[in-house]
Design a binder for these strands. Sequence first.
DNA 1: GAGTTTGAAACT
DNA 2: CAGTTTCAAACTC
Length: 764
Amino acid sequence: MDVVPSELNSILPDEIMDTEAIVMEDSLPVASPAPAPSGVDATETSTQLLLTPSVSSSQCHTPAPAPKPTTLVAGGLQKLSAPFTLSANHQLILNKVGSSSGVDAKSHGTPLLKHEGQKLVVTTISKGGQPIVLTLPHTAAKPGTVVRTGDATVQPQQFKVVAIGGRTELKPVVGVQTVSTASQLGSSSPQTASQNQQLKTVQITKKTVASTAGPMVTKFIITKALSSKGLSSQTSVSPVLTGRVLGQGTPVTPPRTIAIADTLNSASQSVPTSKVAISPLMSPSKLTVVSMASPSPGSPQKTVSLPLSVALGQQILAVQQPTSPAKAAPNQSTSQTVKPVQTVAVGGVGTSQFKTIFPLAATPSVQQIQVPGSRFHYVRLVTATTASGTAHNSSPSINSASSQPAKPLVVNTAPMRMSVPIVPAQTVKQVVPKPLNSTAQVVPTQTQQRLIMPATPLPQIQPNLTNLPPGTVLTSAPGVGNVGYAVLPAQYVTQLQQSSFVTLASSASYSTTTGIQTQARMPLNGTLSVSESTTRPRKPCNCTKSQCLKLYCDCFANGEFCSNCNCTNCFNNLEHESERLKAIKACLDRNPEAFKPKIGKGKEGESDRRHSKGCNCKRSGCLKNYCECYEAKIMCSSICKCVGCKNFEESPERKTLMHLADAAEVRVQQQTAAKTKLSSQISDLLTRTTPALPCGGGRLPYTFVTKEVAEATCDCLMEQAEQAELSSQPQAVAERVILEEFGRCLMRIISSAGKAKMDCSINC
DNA sequence: GAGTTTGAAACT
DNA sequence: CAGTTTCAAACTC
């Protein structure tokens, strides 16, 4: 992976997004959160991972030196406590427990995970310059509210690494270890394979959620198949993050370790890398990284190879593919079979999103770009610089990589898969990337697995890196070196990859997609499943005069390309990328925060969410959707300039409206439930009435109740009725006689059916 | 579905 | 910064 120049980092934002938590609900069994050690800031939780450092060039072919925990996260090790745990179903769970603050995310050589409010930032800037950023939305504790980590009432923040592949055996985890136990790694840890490498520390720090709504749990799911042989192969190719799960407070969970490979330049051609582009999330979301490595149940080393280079929040999450033992051998010629890059695009403001990460066939690296002041992180896609320099040199040193930040960037044209979100079908576009020297091309009907990126250099955009539209992904443009970017909304990246998903799903070796989809349907907070939230169709715009290049257009305002909209003369697409970029710049010139979410966190003591600018309603009373506050289901605040506002807490009008809305919603739910039930009953009925198999079935052949049989039965009943009438029988007696006849008819039918069935059984 | 209302965005 | 115009969504009929 190439290195982002330090000077660039200095101008990039350290804030990724200002949204709600990605995932706030965890229904999966997890280890109990370890109690925070004494002295821990009760308002925060943290998890630190001990990572192996990048492998130097000399280490690629030689055994790595003994483990050497080199860096610990600022903020005090004593605050570490949250472990990774690996559940029985291959789920690596990183519980957030104790915490510290003041983490310097830009400390080179210090990968770290920190949480700021609802924002969980996992930043790894190794010596190789490879940053890892995991960002979760803010969830700042309310003033005066203290939630103690380890408190039974507080659910743990979690990172979850799930291996999907049907493995029955857990691999020993190597690599995840809290700092407090770092010293144990080299001496007592059985996962000695990791001892050959230096250790890096990753800290995950998150303030404990203290909202009145109750503790929230952030769950980050990374699904990966376990590397078949884990560490043994990783030592030569990629740095391995090693560690061990702390058993603090979780005696039932045996300490396990996980090896997380760290993608570096040295492995850029042979070590898979995953990327995730994530748009700001306003509501709980889950991110799942699907491992494409085939499971290796027989692996002697219970090791999870988890390449990690992740950026959350409208950005790129780069995750290195697990390096299989064989493929990770020093001879990188065998590494071509490794699916390298995964990209996840989680887009959409204000909606829960669930995206999956899929491997790319190519091996582009990811450059994490942090823009100061921006809520977004940007990632530049780069391939290994030159084949001779990195691809074939099995041991490029990390330092050398970091010292070459300005390598020419070339988008790898090899087939690769990128983001594969669960998106509404209507948004699906299949795109076939063109060669690098060509412009972007969208081919809706083809399914080649190449990613096309707009090749347009964006000199006019670069000065405004801090305010690119949500979901924008900066990718390297061919032939322009580091200064070339292509701007893609994450949503579009998502669209680009849809075809890959299909192909992926059809591959036996990537059967994990089923699991992902299953997870995607897991309910969040018991209200809305991820699937529902992500598959909710984006409202199409109807722009006619703005060309969808002004903020009037919701698509454009949300940083999305128009897709299946009703707009006319739309320029909000790749075909008009240059115009679009100009429009973006124009908007940013007018308002540098034009693409930032309007609904953000309010001042201390105020509601968690409020309109950033406030509304200016005059006639609606702020009780119609004309009002942006009301539309966002938030109260008007002091910064609103509305007239006759009725959108405040005690407003009787608002309460009435809310009640009506709730009632309507209940009715809709009831109707939906009724429809579902009815549909189920009909389906069941159809199943029942489906002619049973003549042989072997437990049911009688209902087909015996044919029209003729029914008519004959009716004749019999009528005959009984006539006889009763002729004999002047009382009505009650007549009815009884008719019913008895009906019973006899039924018995005959059943008997005949049973006999036929029996005969069939004999014949069969 | 057409027409009206509304308020944000854009413009002056 | 204020006033006006433009625009598209929300709303009504």
